[in-house]
Design a protein around this nucleic acid. Sequence first.
DNA 1: TTTATCCGGATAAAATATATCCGATTAAGG
DNA 2: CCTTAATCGGATATATTTTATCCGGATAAA
Lengths: 162, 162
Amino acid sequence: MQLGKGVEWCTHICGMLALVPTGKGLSAEALADFFEVPSAYLAKQMQLLRRAGIVESVRGKGGGYRLARGVDAITLLDIVQAIEGPSPAFRCTEIRQNGPCGLKRKDCKAPCEIASAFAEAEEVYRDALRAKTLAAINAEAAANGSPEHFIEVAQWVQRQVS
Amino acid sequence: MQLGKGVEWCTHICGMLALVPTGKGLSAEALADFFEVPSAYLAKQMQLLRRAGIVESVRGKGGGYRLARGVDAITLLDIVQAIEGPSPAFRCTEIRQNGPCGLKRKDCKAPCEIASAFAEAEEVYRDALRAKTLAAINAEAAANGSPEHFIEVAQWVQRQVS
DNA sequence: TTTATCCGGATAAAATATATCCGATTAAGG
DNA sequence: CCTTAATCGGATATATTTTATCCGGATAAA
C-alpha cells in the first residue's frame, strides 16, 4: 500500500506556491527544476491539483500555477485525494457472498464487520490529514528551518516570476 | 493507494479459523473453496500469515492451517502488516535536498514537516486497526448475523476437519 | 507405498504507476 | 496580426507491482 510520488511532490509544491505573489504563477517546468523531478509527469499531477480546485493555472506567456485559495483552506487530505482519487484503500469484494456458505445479497445490505473496521480506520486517517493545513505546515517549517534558507527560496521564486 | 486483495481474504479467513477445533487445521484448498478465491495465490498469502506468526501450518495428510494464538491476541493491524509489509504508505524521498535551493543532508536529520504529518496520520490509522481484535470482529459478526448462518459455517468446518 | 498437504521458487499475465512526447489551445508582447 | 511562450489533453511507452499459476521437493498420515 503506497501513495504515489505525486503526493510528496505536490505537497511540497503547494507549500512553495504560497510564496508566489498575487497575480503571478510558477510554470510546471520551474517547479520540476526546483525539486528535480520529471517535468512532464509533474505536469500531469498539477492537472490533477487543478481539477480538484487546489491550484489554478494561467496559460500563455508568463503563465503558470498558483494556489486557488488560501493556505488555511488547503489541507493535506485535499492534496492526497486530488492525486490518489477518492477510492478507499481497503477493497471489499463481498466474499462473504461467495462459496458454499455464501450469504444472499439481500442479507448484505449493511457492510460486514471487517469492512466497517477498515472504513473507520481510514476515517481517522483522513481526519488527521484534514486537520493539517498548508498554513500549519508552513508555519512549522518556518519555525524549524533556518531564516537563510527561507530567504533563498523566496528569492528564487522572485526570479521566476519577474 | 490500495491494499491487496489478500488483506480482505486473510481477515475473513482468520475469523473463520477461530472455529477450527484445537489440534485440527483447514487446508489452503478448502479455504479457497469456501471463499471462491484462487487457491494457489491464497496459499502465498497464507505463507505470509505464517511467517508473521499469525497462523501455524501442519504438513502432510490431514494437515492445514490454524490460528497460532488466541483471537484476542490477533488484531487487524497484525494481518495488514503481515500481508502488506512494514513500509509506510507515504514515501519521503527527501526532495527538499534537491534542486537549486536544496538543503544539505546534515540539515535534514529530522524528518520534514510534511513527512511528519503523514507519519502521524498513519500512526492513528494503525492505532485504529490495532484496537480491533479478531475476537471483537467475531463478536460483532455473531451479534449481527443470523444464528442459522453461523451454524451452517460451523458445520462446514466440521466436515472439513473430520 | 500412496495420498494429501505445505513449502519455496520460477514464471507469467494483468493492472497500475511512472514517464515521455506531441499537437491543440491560449495569452502576452511586438 | 504574428510570433513566442506556456498550459492542456490525449496518445503512447516503460517500469513496477499485483495477481495468478505451476512444479518439484519435503512431510506426515493412512
